[in-house]
């Protein structure tokens, strides 16, 4: 698994491809402390006003804050709005 990932990275570097595509990484865009857009996700694991956990390949993204809402939920991305305190990546071992 790890070696495949390494190969992909090497290939991406050689061909100068964006790494989020070659490595299947989520693209997280943070707009101040008001909005977080997570693209290339794998679904919503947990949704509470204080925390939204989004699944991604090989781990998950946890957005913490207050009064969090899911402004848009689609296959292309999840938009989270509210008062964002932290964005944390958790990798599966």
């Amino acid at each position: 698994m790890k070696s495949r990932r390494r190969w992909r990275r090497r290939l991406g570097e050689i061909l100068d491809l964006p790494q989020d595509i070659t490595l299947d990484l989520p693209r997280v865009t943070v707009l101040g402390d008001l909005q977080v857009l997570v693209e290339n996700h794998r679904g919503v694991i947990r949704y509470a006003p204080e925390e939204v956990v989004i699944a991604m390949s090989g781990g998950r993204v946890a957005v913490r804050g207050r009064d969090l809402g899911l402004t848009v939920i689609s296959s292309s991305g999840v938009t989270i709005t509210g008062l964002v305190d932290a964005v944390r990546f958790e990798r599966f071992p």
Partner: peptide
């Protein structure tokens, strides 16, 4: 999401 149904304004 898996069916491609868009959702919005989730609270």
């Amino acid at each position: 999401l898996s069916r491609g149904i868009p959702l919005w304004d989730g609270v």
